[in-house]
Nucleic acid binder design. Structure first.
Length: 316
DNA sequence: AATTGCTCCAACCGCGAGATT
DNA sequence: CAATCTCGCGGTTGGAGCAAT
């Protein structure tokens, strides 16, 4: 026996919402709130599935939503959080006031993935492609290398083609320290407590456990002028951070692309994690655990300064 | 001007998990 | 305690709009 459908599909309208439908839904929710999504369309006089109404409200009609372009700071926050949390779009979106998980996911899939690929960074592992190739070459025994390296390159074919055709890249293999296993695709299956710990760690870098693969000390920067890059941290995976300061337009592809068409303002290296408005039920430290175990950081905008020296951590 | 290909994003779908009965 | 309901999440799709040919 299959799952009961959320609504009778025959009597339900699908596709784009009309302004009239938006109006009906908005005014109904303004009066009655969002208590039972299954009943809302019926009571609001809409021939829509409750699920569709919820989606329309949460992703488009909610008055606290931001509809404009993503700012540099927002993009950097997404990239950094994604490197730690993987595709936990709702958790990432919770740190970006006015943005929905759908917004963040779409922006990641359409822009940020390409941007990272263009920088020579694998958007899944957040490691440089050159390092991945190197890893394959050093891990495998000689007879396997040609076949598997070829297969791996096949996986990255699009990214590599992009790199080779759009940007001059330095494919010289560098001597990286061996990174701890860090697979963001597995993040879904990992322990709930670890997710909570990770999110806490982003807020409170001094709480980061030593030698954890996701040790991102000094890696956060959301307001800077200079080069934002990904580099390996000793024994602990990769860091995003400032490779150079005050070098606008001459830095990494990230810096170039991030600064093009907008003003990169100088400023301290800071991280700002803001609470979504209207949250309640926070603990004594201002955090609230959601249904899925993620943490919504709900204190006032949390800022901390990261010394430039910590960020300028070039790879030899 | 017509066609084709691409990008972006709104919307849909299936599923898991918490809440309720 | 099991069955059912409801919500929210993440992956995927479809189509509108734009650019290139």
């Amino acid at each position: 026996m299959g799952r009961i459908p959320c609504c009778e599909k025959d009597n339900v309208k699908r596709g784009q919402w009309t302004p009239e439908e938006d109006q009906k839904l908005s005014s109904y929710i303004a009066q009655h709130g969002t208590r039972n999504w299954r009943l809302i369309p019926k009571h609001a006089g809409l021939q829509r599935c409750g699920k569709s109404c919820r989606l329309r409200w949460t992703n488009y009609l909610r008055p606290d939503l931001k509809h404009g372009q993503f700012t540099e700071a927002e993009e950097q926050t997404i990239v950094t959080l994604h490197s730690v949390l993987g595709n936990r779009w709702s958790v990432i979106a919770a740190q970006l006031p006015g943005r929905t998980d759908n917004d963040v996911k779409n922006h990641w899939n359409t822009k940020l993935k390409k941007k990272l690929s263009g920088m020579g960074i694998d958007p899944v592992t957040h490691k440089p492609f050159s390092h991945l190739i190197n890893e394959i070459a050093t891990t495998l025994s000689p007879p396997q290398v040609p076949h598997l390296a070829e297969a791996a390159l096949g996986c990255f074919k699009d990214e590599m083609l992009h790199l080779l055709t759009k940007r001059r890249i330095d494919l010289q293999l560098q001597q990286y320290s061996p990174a701890a296993p860090f697979n963001t695709t597995c993040v879904k299956h990992e322990d709930k407590d670890e997710i909570i710990e990770k999110t806490k760690a982003i807020k409170e870098p001094d709480m980061l456990p030593i030698n954890k693969p996701w040790d991102y000390t000094g890696a956060m920067s959301t307001n800077f002028s200079g080069t934002f890059s990904c580099f390996p941290a000793s024994d602990s995976g990769y860091h995003y951070g400032l490779a150079s300061l005050g070098n606008e337009g001459n830095g990494s592809p990230w810096s170039q692309s991030m600064c093009m068409g907008s003003t990169c303002t100088a400023g301290d290296q800071q991280v700002c994690l803001k609470k979504p408005e209207g949250e309640n039920g926070e603990d004594s430290e201002g955090r609230k655990e959601t249904r899925d175990g993620s943490i919504i950081i709900s204190s006032e905008c949390v800022l901390w300064d990261i010394p430039s020296d910590d960020l300028i951590n070039h790879v030899d």
